[in-house]
Design a protein around this nucleic acid. Structure first.
Lengths: 336, 336
DNA sequence: TTGAAAGCGCTAACAA
DNA sequence: TTGTTAGCGCTTTCAA
């Protein structure tokens, strides 16, 4: 990475010289506040033209150093290569830009140490807000931000020390379970308890979804099989492995399933294809998450789509209102 | 976004005062080059401890302003919410960090103006390299970078003014077409020309893939239907609409198809489901792109997976070797 | 082994 | 209406 053309970049001093004026005039013009500085429109025009000609680009480092507010907003996110998080970051960027904020995003691979490191890096860049998405330890990050006087906010997974915006996991899971049980009845004539698979028992979302799962069973008068609740982690392999163990231990796996994310669904589908259990009697699935190809290609798969733009709208509301309180905002997922 | 705690952040001067030493000593210690400055390890330790206690975080803006090299590397990318680009950005971040570079990424929604604006913003942040991924006008971006003395590189779609790293579209499409024609023969007993759908006729990748598509037909002695080559754009709706028009005009659509991306595949699948044409005789598809759920749930869909990590490895090779020449590097896609 | 001081490019208060 | 100037927090050279 040796600078091949160590070419000095044009500065406002260069422009000032070319325009026969001062750096401060150039700065004012280029920042768009030349009317309040009452600079003549001719000078303004001249400066703008010269800047254009020179291909001038402001040095953000210098500008930010001098300014008191960075207008940078940071987000950390566990993964990119997934439709849910992908659309979160995409929407985040768009909304940030609409509000004149500069978004910076880092992906932390669900690694707690990386999360902390990423948070510190964001602070070094003087972010005004940090949004922790799906963080393994949100409160840790809030503490780090608090110590630096930076505000933060949790998305997707809640923490106790900052406002959290999450899906309404309980109500969503209850509805999804109800729908899946109903689908099962339609296909098989009866309702038997579903298998719950995927997610971490220790995380809030999974716990709430399990609660909704139980409640829906109760609503419909279906008993629960306690040993059929498998919070085995999110990774596809974990889900496949859990199904495999159950199949070996019990000889079969329930036909109706509640799958806790598309990530887990990947493992579930893989296992289903490799096992011979479901030939002629395909599983009836409810998935708490959405993917277009599953929606298109998956038969008998009901999906709860988390309302990404609703969640981010809520997040930016908090940012703009400068919400200093700690609230838990729950956004209902969307059913097709 | 009013700073609620306008809390002055701790600087190296604060630390220096607390440690009873100078700012320059603090700086040296915190940068890890205190051995070459021959600072006593006691002092170093003391400074480190105090910095820790104070939750000190360097101000990157100030640091970067003073340094000559930013070690920031930028990437612009058309979309996030797609497995291909998702894994590109994820891999990019990981590889950048491994090399001690700070990655900043922006998504430009295939909007040429946004691409230019994003490029300028990246230059403002003093990126040392800019990687334009799937840009609509890569040469424009290269020009902007050149003018600022910043190096750039094209990924996924090539340009003529900077090194470009892309999939081997011709060979990949030829192989994919061959496989799809063979699948068609296996299912139907014969080979009839495939439909080509998706992508922009004006982009290099689509042109090369059409060339490979033609060549494979020729290899296998299958004629080409010229009016069955539909470079109708990438968006799902475009593909669905193109199929619709063809079905209305010709009464049917070929059973064998070459689909130019998973994005287009979304539209193709949607149309197939809504049309009655393929009941009992499902289409035989080859898709130039990969998605895990399509691989799992799609029947008779062959996929060419672009070698994301191979492409990025090549990109970072160029960055590290500081390759100033313009080359076209083609990476073969992967078949299951 | 350590400190003083200059200056990176910019913004904003103050002078003119 | 415009220019001068003092830093923003840091790195780095030079002097001690």
């Amino acid at each position: 990475m040796n600078q091949q053309h160590p070419q000095k970049k044009t500065t406002i001093y260069d422009l000032a010289e070319l325009a026969g004026t001062s750096a401060s005039a150039v700065s004012a013009v280029l920042n768009g506040n030349w009317k309040k500085r009452r600079i003549s429109s001719q000078l303004a025009e001249k400066i703008t033209r010269i800047a254009e000609e020179q291909g001038y680009a402001v040095n953000m480092q210098a500008s930010l150093l001098r300014r008191e507010k960075s207008r940078i907003i940071g987000m950390i996110v566990p993964k990119y290569d997934n439709r849910y998080f992908g659309s979160i970051v995409e929407t985040f960027e768009i909304m940030a830009r609409e509000r004149g904020l500069f978004p910076i995003i880092t992906c932390t691979l669900r690694d707690p140490d990386l999360e902390v490191e990423a948070a510190r890096t964001m602070l070094s860049y003087q972010v005004e807000w940090l949004i922790s998405t799906g963080a393994t330890d949100p409160d840790r990050i809030t503490d780090i931000c608090l110590a630096a006087g930076t505000r933060s906010l949790n998305l997707d997974l809640p923490g106790t020390k900052a406002t959290s915006i999450i899906s309404d996991n309980f109500a969503g899971a209850r509805e999804l379970t109800k729908r899946t049980l109903t689908n099962l009845k339609r296909k098989t004539g009866g309702m038997s308890p579903l298998l719950f698979i995927g997610g971490r028992g220790s995380d809030h979302n999974t716990a709430e979804r399990i609660r909704g799962f139980r409640m829906a069973h109760q609503d419909l008068g279906v008993p629960i099989e306690e040993h059929h609740i498998l919070a085995c982690g999110y990774a596809p392999e974990k889900a496949a492995q859990a199904l495999n163990m159950m199949a070996t231990a019990e000889g079969s796996v329930p036909r109706g399933m509640f799958v806790n994310s598309t990530i887990s669904l990947e493992g579930v589908m893989r296992w289903i294809q490799s096992s011979a259990q479901f030939v002629g009697a395909p599983p009836i699935i409810g998935c708490f998450d959405w993917d277009p190809f599953v929606a298109l290609l998956g038969h008998d798969i009901e999906m709860a789509q988390q309302d990404v733009s609703g969640m981010l709208k809520a997040a930016f509301d908090v940012v703009e209102k400068d919400g200093g309180d700690r609230r838990l905002i729950e956004i209902p997922p969307i059913f097709a």
